[in-house]
Design a protein around this nucleic acid. Structure first.
Length: 422
RNA sequence: GGUGAGGUGGCUGAGUGGUCGAAAGCAGCGCUUUGCUAAAGCGCCGUACCCCAAAAGGGUACCGAGGGUUCGAAUCCCUCCCUCACCGCCA
């Protein structure tokens, strides 16, 4: 959520930054300014009336205690009460209107973000490794079928299309990857492991900005209050919601494994083959809560932490920075990690590392006390470390050998319990 | 799911209709005293928003959340959330 004061004081700046996203949100600034002015006007009038009522009510108390007649005062206060009720309604209506609108407006892209319309304008920041030389490449679907690593048809029988059921060695490989990544981030990178609930309240979804705008993409329970978490970002970032953290306990670094549930409404057709895009997938997520001045340095290290997974698995990848038009709703700056999939003959996004600055903490009222004793909104960051299905797919594709076995990276072998899948 | 007891400032905890944004204690900050530490004394010590060009200053709201009663609500009533205890059910 943007700061209404920033919008009030620098409307042109806000319009200009929003315009770089290409979503047309800059057009809402004027509406917001109008509501803000209304709100403040009503609030000022309301406060004046409240002050008067407060004073007169005390006078009534005084008069009564002296045994004097206070009927006239009471009538006056009663009248003020009616006016207050009216103004109160106006004030809270304007207040809600303002908040509702603010919740719909995306974050401002970082000043240095590459400006562009869509993914084609995303610059590559760096790359690691090189494409493997493979002959007669089978893609992950063929490999998975051949080695019985997952069963798409039976998963559809259970839950419909877009679901996957890992089987046998495939299920074990999935589990090994999760364990491997959790160990790496907790032991080598200093993250605290969280195992959060997968169902989260509506407020949490608003806090991390999945709601109100993207409700159609979420799985909600019937009561409308609980949602299946679309990413561990939601429960983990909201862990400290409504708190004031001490400066000396920052940054908070959390890692969590959870399944992720997404309707992916309207996304069928592209990049949906096999297990590339499903309604439920596993992910290990990194989350940081930082002091405002450190968040960009923390984004670099968080991204490096995610990259480390791919490096240890020996998978070729590139890091791209999202341009303004491709940036997620709440993010000010995002790096995507894309791993090379020989089967898809394409790079696949396996991680998205973002700095939300105070966009989320404003929504969830998460602050920290500065050394000057003043409360400030923390900055939040998150990144996949990593998403499982695409990593799984790439791993088996890259591990395929001429003799038909799938060779696993050395680092993973102790977790899987074998060097290869036969 | 049922019954009962609760939710007050960083913490403990008083407060059942008016002068209560809220006693007191602890923690924290400043000053005084002191050879150091300690102790004692004094003062300060919540958050958000509004007015003001800004500062100074002034004001309003907030005692789990939201409604209601009342001239006036931390205090009375209703709904919800949460915590604790016991019962039921259950991996």
């Amino acid at each position: 959520m943007l700061d209404i004061r920033l919008i009030r004081e620098k409307p042109d700046f806000v319009r200009e930054r929003l315009a770089t996203r290409g979503g047309g949100d800059e057009a809402r600034v004027d509406e917001l300014l109008r509501i803000d002015a209304q709100r403040r006007k009503a609030e000022t009038a309301l406060q004046a009336l409240n002050a008067e009522r407060k004073k007169l009510s005390k006078d009534i108390g005084t008069k009564r205690s002296r045994g004097e007649d206070s009927t006239e005062l009471e009538n006056r206060v009663r009248q003020i009460g009616d006016d207050i009720a009216l103004l109160n309604e106006q004030t809270s209506a304007a207040d809600h209107q303002q908040r509702d609108l603010l919740l719909q407006i995306p974050n401002l892209p970082h000043a240095a973000a590459p400006v562009g319309r869509d993914a084609s304008a995303n610059p590559t920041v760096r790359a690691w490794g090189s494409k493997p030389q493979l002959a007669n490449v089978l893609d992950h679907v063929a490999l998975g079928t051949k080695h019985k690593l997952f069963d798409m048809e039976r998963a559809a029988k259970l839950s419909g299309s877009g679901f996957i059921c890992f089987t046998g060695a495939g299920a074990r490989l999935e589990r090994a990857l999760i364990q491997f990544m959790l160990d790496l981030h907790t032991r080598e990178h200093g993250y605290t492991e969280l195992s959060p609930p997968f169902l989260v309240r509506r407020e949490c979804m608003v806090g991390t900005s999945q709601l109100p705008k993207f409700e159609a993409d979420m799985y909600g329970l019937e009561d409308g209050q609980l949602f299946l978490a679309p990413t561990a970002e939601v429960p983990v970032t909201n862990f400290h919601r409504d708190e004031i953290l001490r400066a000396d306990e920052l940054p908070k670094k959390f890692v969590a494994y959870t399944p992720c549930f997404r309707r992916e409404a309207g996304s069928a057709g592209r990049e949906t083959r096999g297990i590339i895009r499903v309604h439920q997938f596993d992910k290990v997520e990194l989350v940081k809560i930082t002091a405002p001045e450190n968040s960009y340095a923390e984004l670099e290290s968080l991204t490096a932490n995610a990259e480390k997974v791919l490096q240890l698995l020996g998978l070729h990848y590139r890091v791209i920075e999202l341009c303004t038009g491709d940036l997620g709703f709440g993010s000010a700056k995002t790096y995507d990690l894309e791993v090379w999939s020989p089967g898809q003959n394409a790079y696949l996004e396996v991680s998205s590392c973002s700095n939300f600055e105070d966009f989320q903490t404003r929504r969830m009222n998460l602050r920290c006390k500065g050394t000057d004793g003043k409360n400030r909104f923390c900055h939040t960051l998150n990144g996949s470390g990593l998403a499982l299905p695409r990593l799984f797919a790439t791993l088996i594709e890259c591990g395929q050998t001429a003799d038909g076995t799938i060779r696993l990276p050395e680092k993973l072998q102790p977790y899987f319990g074998a060097a290869e899948i036969r």
